[in-house]
Write a protein that binds this DNA or RNA. Structure first.
Lengths: 332, 332
DNA sequence: TTATTTTCATGTAACGTTTCATTCGTAATT
DNA sequence: AATTACGAATGAAACGTTACATGAAAATAA
């Protein structure tokens, strides 16, 4: 009879196997150990159902196999998808994830960073908004959609190219006069380039465009007003609209319906993100798709690479266009 | 000049403040300490910018202030919302969350449980499918939507009442002949009661009903076939449909559109969950809303209560009906 | 004033690992 | 066969806390 009150420790395994503590540690960590020893230890581990105590491990080795993910929320599809894919990638690498949902609140972001650090995470991936986050020197950090200075790498999709692609698509699909709509909210550094890309695309295709950009506090109705002002005799003067996110596109589509405009016959709409209904179905609208899975992988790769480059890279991943019912279908 | 290579420890604080190690520990943990001592210690903590090492803490106290959340994925709106609210609730209680996205895979679920346990979490909240999960005796576990035996508490919304409510609503809104549609996938114990509730509701309102229940592997098209079979002269024989989830309702709505049926004029549709577009807007369809925030809170409360009741409760939270455009509006 | 109780900071012993200097046993060299 | 070299298991020390037994000082009682 053994006292089985608490979980077995390495010491127990060592005793059971008749080897030294250090040997057990080596076996557990996959370090080279003589075959007969390894066998005996593995047997003992089986028999006692031993599991390493990650807290002891973390304390001694100061490597915790845990990373923190800072994200505004887990509800908006783009974020939810990011969380999902990052989790998946981490799992493959045997890393755990501390989820930090920040509500895009600068204070909360900083708080979570402190928490993560005192929790000795091996690194942090963050989609944050606080312009002056303080990150301890020693903690690897990878930013999403926002370049945060020379010490921190950033992963983003190619927002400029995406904007450009949207313009080109609209041109290809026969548009002559288009609009760019954007609302400030939740757009950090990199996604701002969508605008520049779109302008660039319009210019190169000689596509006439107008912009309507709302700030964070502005009432949504201004978009409706804006669109109304461009209706003459029941006909909207735009035949194409590029919305800075699918989220916005969804709202605009509702307004267009209300104003009696047919999509895509009267006006075509392209969004940005690649949001899908319920996560597994069709796109919610025609859209510029961000490569979420690749973004996730890249973040993890950058975070966990063991030899940090002197100059952390700014990684820009390619986007693509996807049909989602709000544009005319292309002839094949 | 101090060597500031590594983070300051309690020992450093103790030296700085000229007190004993134990005293610092007490201050940090809010235990009673003489006022002058407390002050000196707090000053030293400020000065050195000391942060507790949660790994040392976890090792010694075997209380880690961390819980694990097992969830199939973070993408489907109901799950995403659950994650969000649980995170929020935990934050208020100063707990951290280890996110475990399982893909509803039994093996992965078990793997994550083992991981969580060796990570010495203070408890686990799980929405799982594996019928014979092995959970170590010592780890508090709260299940969502699935009662897992006498040792484990379960939180769920009132699925029976929800089904009943759906039937009653349809009756109130003038339906005479309704259908219940369900696909096996992702329905654990408790949500199965939606069916029984719906039947009960139909019977008590003398509402004629039919059911079409698909198993997990079955092709989705069978729903289309089923509905087609019930069309005579362009008219669907059902004037109301209850779908077991909003997810399903969304698909059914597409089929109905394809079949030329007008919603809600020809046929009214009610889903289940309370899914909203993009997390912040209107409901995706008329639906029975699960009180996600309350579910989240209840889970955390049950998990973290310090005196476990002998018999873990099965908590059933009330649902409500919400209009979402796929039913006739009620007259006020 | 002395004896007795109470209060409270102190310091040491774990907690379960990893690491590294040590040592033991064996193989290679002459 | 004797010496040296090598490889590999060993075991003690340390990681940064918490908990508990200890003892000193202050407060009360006699």
């Amino acid at each position: 009879m053994k006292k089985d009150l608490s979980a077995p420790t390495m010491k127990d395994v060592a005793r059971e196997a008749g080897v030294a503590l250090g040997t057990v540690s080596k076996v557990v960590n996959g370090l080279p150990v003589g075959e007969p020893y390894r066998l005996r230890v593995e047997e003992a581990i089986q028999k006692l159902n031993y599991q390493v105590n990650s807290y002891a491990q973390g304390l001694k080795a100061s490597r915790t196999h845990t990373i923190a993910l800072l994200i505004p929320n887990t509800i908006e599809p783009f974020f939810a998808s990011l969380v999902y894919h990052i989790n998946l990638t981490l799992l493959k690498r045997k890393y755990r994830m501390l989820l930090c949902s920040t509500d895009a609140d600068p204070g909360m972001e900083q708080e979570y960073i402190a928490m993560a650090q005192q929790n000795k995470v091996d690194g942090i991936i963050g989609l944050t908004y606080n312009p002056n986050l303080i990150i301890e020197e020693g903690t690897p950090f990878v930013a999403i959609d926002r370049s945060m200075g020379p010490r921190i790498s950033c992963v983003t999709s190619d927002n400029f190219a995406g904007g450009q692609l949207a313009a080109e698509k609209l041109a290809d699909l026969g548009c002559k006069n288009v609009a760019f709509l954007r609302i400030g909210s939740s757009l950090t550094n990199e996604p701002n380039k969508r605008k520049a890309g779109f302008e660039n695309g319009c210019l190169s295709r000689e596509l006439h465009y107008e912009m309507k950009i709302l700030n964070d506090g502005d009432p949504y109705e201004e978009f409706e007003t804006f669109l109304k002002e461009h209706i003459q005799g029941g006909k909207l003067s735009f035949d194409g609209i590029f919305c800075v996110t699918d989220h916005l596109a969804y709202r605009i589509l509702k307004i267009l319906r209300k104003l009696g405009q047919k999509v895509p016959e009267d006006v075509q709409v392209i969004g940005f993100d690649g949001t899908r209904h319920f996560g597994f179905q069709e796109y919610t609208c025609s859209t510029i798709v961000q490569p979420v899975s690749e973004i996730a992988q890249m973040c993890v790769d950058l975070l966990l690479q063991d030899n940090m480059p002197a100059k952390p890279p700014l990684v820009c991943l390619p986007v693509s266009y996807a049909y989602g019912g709000t544009t005319l279908e292309e002839e094949r």
